[in-house]
Design a binder for these strands. Structure first.
Lengths: 251, 251
DNA sequence: CGTTGGCTTGAGTCAGATCAATAGACGTGG
DNA sequence: CCACGTCTATTGATCTGACTCAAGCCAACG
């Protein structure tokens, strides 16, 4: 957070200056010289919906999501899967300092990302402390998210899970990149696009498809949300939704 | 991991040179000059069993665990709690770059830790890249643990959870600090001390005390483990225990 | 020796899983 | 255009693993 003030508005390397997420993510914290260096080792890559970007246990990549949605998941031998994170534009992919990924990364929508050369990135990490700081900050944020989800998976009921998911998604969507949005600065009546399928919601929330579907209709019948269709909903009663999510505050 | 090779065996600052966990944790990666600087801003603190070290939402501290066991937990408004991590000697406490802790840290046994001045630590972080690298590495390890636990909480049955817990604990115990032990290098017949109560196991595994107890006796009756008493068990059939844990490999 | 706290065990209940059927959206090809 | 298969989501009926409630055990301790 303190670094953001060091941000410099002078001319930028061509590729980055036109980038949609330039002011966010890692890039936002970098000085021109660092950004220039980063640009030198990056290239855009595209993925189709459903395509696997990284497989659990195989070498990680380093990349920024430019557009599209992805999920990170972990699997058990018998096929059960748990989604451990959703990735949005400006999110960073890749486990710095680890030689194999602990998750499978899969594109949900069509995805564009800005991929970095591994060696080059680790080299930059050493020589640009501000980048290292930024990567650490991102890692801490991911950790915090993971732990919040542990609380959800270990303690919350099905309905609380679904409600929490919708609120988090709304927050992330309202956010739209400019990080650190006020916790409860959500306006009632907000239209929400759910970018993942019911099956993926189930894998994310530790439930079955059927239970997700049932709890969604329950929230609708209780007047907390309204449906346009299965994938796009409107938050009607925000206060009640927060209460249904279980944490009372901070959502 | 590559940094470890930069480790220097020359004379050390007095306090650190006598420290039980000197060669591990953050300290192990540091050069003498950095370690000396770290030593300058650290002092030992003691906590009694059950004592709260940090409260969720309040300012974090920075410290290394020297001896004893602690848990990190997150709570819901109505009192439900989820333990998100167990802390062992050599573990690092504190969310670098965040101004409030996202977890409550509580001593389980009597605890000694080596606490660092916050300002001083962040200052060191900037001026000693090797320390920053080390903190990032630690954060990534914590993230990986959190995600493995998400898989457990979201997908595994009660028995799988308990079996996984015992195996992880055994690994950590055999480990005893010298990190990166071979995954399945556990010898059958290993005596295991469970440092936490059934209630804490329940809060860690997302179960109730009763279910933990029942699954423990089930594992005993099935001959996978043997009890000395509730808190100290022996791993009898390691292969079956791994299978019961559900991941098949990597444990 | 009574009390207290941690653990186990039993009996009954319920939230969520499983199994199964249906409906709508979407293409594809005749 | 319609018939068909596929895929996703919803809904219903039933089942079950874990929770709840309750009792009992044992060791520690005043």
């Amino acid at each position: 957070m303190s670094i953001q003030s060091a941000f410099n508005l002078a001319p930028l390397p061509s590729a980055c200056s036109r980038c949609a997420i330039r002011s966010q993510s890692l890039c936002g914290a970098l000085t021109d010289v660092a950004l220039s260096a980063l640009n030198g080792i990056s290239r855009h890559r595209h993925f189709a919906p459903g395509q696997i970007v990284v497989t659990e246990g195989e070498p990680a990549i380093f990349a920024n999501v430019v557009s599209g949605i992805l999920v990170e998941k972990k699997g058990l031998a018998d096929g059960r899967e748990q989604i451990v994170a959703m990735l949005f534009p400006a999110d960073f992919i890749g486990d710095a300092q680890r030689d194999s990924s602990d998750t499978t990364v899969q594109a949900v929508t069509a995805v564009t990302m800005c991929a970095f050369d591994r060696q080059g990135f680790e080299h930059l990490l050493v020589h640009h402390p501000v980048l290292a700081h930024c990567v650490l900050d991102h890692a801490m944020a991911r950790l915090e998210n993971a732990r919040e989800w542990m609380l959800l998976l270990g303690q919350k009921s099905a309905e609380e899970r679904v409600a929490t998911f919708l609120l988090r998604l709304a927050l992330r969507q309202a956010d739209a990149g400019c990080r650190h949005v006020a916790p409860d600065m959500l306006e009632p009546g907000l239209e929400l696009e759910i970018p993942i399928s019911r099956a993926q919601m189930a894998a994310y929330l530790g439930l079955t498809i059927e239970t997700v579907s049932r709890r969604m209709t329950a929230l609708r019948d209780a007047g907390l949300v309204a449906f346009r269709d299965a994938r796009s909903i409107r938050l009607v009663n925000l206060e009640a939704l927060r209460k249904a999510a279980g944490d009372q505050d901070r959502n």
